[in-house]
């Protein structure tokens, strides 16, 4: 089921008396169960797009539909039952407790005094157990780490019980393990039948977990497709790295251009080969895994055996191997 779609939408903002258009002719759609990453360089209009979709920002032209109804037809509170957001801004009230903050997500459902009914409380409990933050319930916001805070804000969006959740850079400032945890959480949220849209700069994580990518470019049309297709078409390269082309498209990592120190043939245990190769490349060696060269390294049982010409030396760590090669 299509949760949201846009029709020749133009986004931007008013600058003086003229419209500053960031993106135009956007025709995209997101269905339930899908997780989509929105990528592009800074200033390309990702946040503006997100705010436009969620009704927080005026569009310049075109239309946004929520479940086939034009966004303007919704009242503020009925729109709040369709779409919830996690933004980059932090709340003013650092003294709010986690449970109070999540309870605010029930705003569109509670009565005029904001009293919580049994079903409100159930939704809050469910949101907290889905995000695994039950243990944080009584903490104040200023006591949370960045990762915990992000999970709390996601729980608040879940408590809002919307079909669509939009997140603006949910993994910014997080360490790798927290990034992965958040992305897996979002994946499971999408798995429960909701639609998830993420604006992000995390290439590797979003390549692996998104069903589709939306790529925003300066002065070029928006691209929409399966991440792997977009990689093969070179679209990711053009969108995200227009200036330096040192990105290895097969892995999404930085390519090593400095390979002037020579060639090394690397053999042995696959895991050891992988990390030894990375260390050698960083230090200026080109690594290959089949063609014979002047230097051969065999990795087995946590021992590195270096063979060059007639000599053969063993090392018990990559560090010692590198010292020898220098």
């Amino acid at each position: 089921m299509k949760l949201i779609h846009t029709q020749s939408l133009a986004i931007g903002y008013i600058e003086g008396r003229t419209n500053k258009v960031l993106q135009e002719n956007i025709n995209l759609s997101l269905s339930s169960g899908e997780i989509i990453s929105l990528m592009g360089q800074n200033g390309v209009g990702k946040t503006t797009f997100i705010k436009t979709l969620s009704g927080l920002h005026k569009r310049i032209s075109g239309s946004v539909y929520h479940q086939d109804r034009l966004i303007d037809e919704f009242s503020k509170s009925s729109l709040a039952k369709q779409i919830s957001v996690v933004l980059t801004e932090k709340p003013f009230a650092a003294h709010l407790s986690v449970i109070e903050l999540i309870a605010l997500g029930r705003h569109p459902y509670s009565n005029w005094l904001g009293r919580l009914s049994t079903s409100d409380k159930q939704a809050i409990d469910l949101a907290m157990s889905q995000t695994n933050i039950d243990y944080l319930a009584r903490k104040k916001l200023y006591q949370l780490s960045d990762g915990q805070f992000q999970k709390v804000m996601i729980a608040r969006a879940l408590a809002q019980e919307t079909d669509l959740i939009i997140l603006d850079e949910p993994t910014a400032h997080l360490d790798l393990s927290n990034k992965i945890e958040i992305m897996l959480l979002l994946k499971s949220i999408a798995g429960s039948g909701k639609g998830v849209l993420i604006a992000t700069h995390d290439l590797q994580v979003s390549l692996q977990l998104s069903d589709r990518l939306w790529l925003f470019n300066f002065n070029r049309p928006v691209l929409d497709g399966c991440p792997e297709d977009l990689i093969l078409q070179g679209a990711i390269d053009q969108t995200l790295f227009p200036i330096n082309n040192n990105i290895d498209l097969t892995t999404g990592t930085v390519k090593h251009l400095d390979e002037r120190k020579g060639n090394v043939l690397l053999q042995g245990d696959p895991t050891m080969v992988h990390w030894t190769a990375q260390a050698l490349q960083r230090n200026g060696y080109a690594v290959n895994k089949d063609t014979p060269t002047s230097i051969t390294i065999n990795c087995l049982n946590c021992l590195w055996k270096l063979e060059s010409k007639d000599t053969s030396t063993s090392f018990d760590s990559i560090e010692n191997l590198l010292i020898h090669l220098k």
């Binding site: 003013f92 709010l96 005029w112």
Partner: peptide, 24 residues
């Protein structure tokens, strides 16, 4: 004032969040 409490609580998260939760 008491009637406004609910919306004022939502505004603790900032204007954008409040609006996204249905505050006009």
């Amino acid at each position: 004032s008491i009637g406004l409490s609910k919306s004022l609580n939502a505004l603790l998260l900032g204007a954008n969040y409040a609006e996204s939760m249905g505050v006009d």
